[in-house]
Nucleic acid binder design. Structure first.
Lengths: 242, 242
DNA sequence: CTTATGCTTCTAACATGCTACATGTCACGA
DNA sequence: TCGTGACATGTAGCATGTTAGAAGCATAAG
């Protein structure tokens, strides 16, 4: 027997594959990897200073969620989700996050208020500072906290992947159409309902939020120059969501 | 210019990695891979007569969906989902498949009846023949067709993964508790509503079906010898689903 | 007999080698 | 001028080599 004086160092520094995933996500987010362009595992491995194996594994995992697509003997591309894919993703978010808000309200304990309110404050601050990127970060964190309260790990994983896939279409949208404060204020009734333990109210507020946000995102997506086939956002909306 | 006299040969035989995935799925399904036991990539690669790379990639993809878990420098295990995980999966299925049934009903055209009815007939035949495995196959196919009609590819992928993860707890359940005919009859109102174009009806019927089936699955899961922590299925049900 | 220590063995994770194939270039011939 | 085919280049997919670490065991130390 021995008394434990040292904590086990938390597992290990992240696996090289996982660090590569993070690097790739970041690269996609900030535009270092141009969507649609052709890249190779060789090239990425050299840039990151690692071997091809972890890069390939990382890309395969991203491919599984639809963020990138491999083309045999040619390379891989970062995929920009089209209007149709975007509508599908919004549908999934509504289907999963609305009940999650309800469960979060039912499960919320007194101590849980703190995290929710902290993110709200941070969002508000980012809104007044007009910092879109920071705003989106806290927006995602708030939604993440709600999912955590709901406690369904599968839902958490699914939504996280979806967010990655849709991040490419996000930032361009918010700027033009709505002020950040407007978006922020949509979140207040959700948080209040959760803190109050009002399940149905939280669900209703979350539904409202996702619908209005999704509607605008989809509308912007179809009216983009590279929209492709679909030009009718209303049709997509009724087909996949309503 | 040239006139096309030959059809392009249909892409390529499946990639070795994908064939390995199928082999592993099948092996898990029929019990060749004992859940909980420790295996190694070496061993699997040798058994299948391929190199370690495609096996590792296949296992990584299965790990992503939670079917197996890697343990560094030790091996990997097939994971049996516990009652809690099962409840979470049922919640996701309800959240996604209920709206999918509604959309399927709205989108169903005359020609779509055929596939639905064919699976129904096959299910009924399997029920009268007491063939549990065949019954489950057609059950899954029917649900798959409905998702296809709904047209949301993300939902399709998510549900397919979920089904894989939950297949381990499935077969033992149905046998004892209900006759296959009972389960079959739950599907009829769903299919009828879809064919009739009755969206709300299809949603209601699907919800009913998933609730009763899920309830029983969860109840059986907690009353199993290796159930683990949770013994209260009602608590799990309200926590994640209702 | 009990505890500690070194050793053997196995593993995932990572690095590197190899092959078939897709694409672009370019010289050549009609 | 224009189509053709050989060739060079680059890639994913797969095979194999290498390394650090975890588990078990035997043996030595107390």
């Amino acid at each position: 027997m021995h008394s434990s004086v040292l904590q086990p160092l938390d597992s290990r520094a992240l696996s090289l594959t996982e660090r590569t995933i993070n690097a790739l996500r970041e690269a996609i987010r900030n535009g270092s990897l141009t969507p649609g362009a052709l890249y190779s595992v060789y090239q990425i491995a050299e840039d990151l200073g690692v071997s091809r194996s972890p890069v390939r594994e990382a890309l395969l995992r991203l491919a599984e969620t639809g963020i990138v697509r491999f083309e045999r003997n040619k390379g891989f591309r970062v995929v920009v989700p089209g209007p149709s894919a975007l509508a599908e993703m919004i549908a999934v978010r509504i289907a999963l996050e609305v009940p999650a808000a309800r469960h979060a309200a039912n499960a919320a304990k007194a101590g849980d208020d703190h995290g929710l309110l902290a993110e709200c404050k941070a969002m508000q601050a980012a809104a007044t500072a007009q910092d879109v990127l920071l705003f989106m970060t806290h927006d995602q964190r708030l939604h993440g906290i709600i999912l955590e309260l709901a406690g369904n790990s599968y839902v958490q994983r699914i939504i996280e992947n979806l967010r990655d896939a849709s991040r490419l279409v996000g930032p361009s949208t918010i700027k033009g159409t709505r002020t950040l404060s407007e978006v922020f204020e949509e979140h207040l009734p959700i948080v209040n309902a959760i803190i109050a333990g009002d399940g149905p109210g939280a669900a209703r507020a979350m539904h409202e939020h996702l619908k209005t946000t999704g509607r605008i995102l989809l509308h912007d997506a179809v009216s983009r120059p590279d929209a492709g086939e679909h030009t009718d956002d209303a049709e997509l909306w009724t087909r996949f969501i309503d």
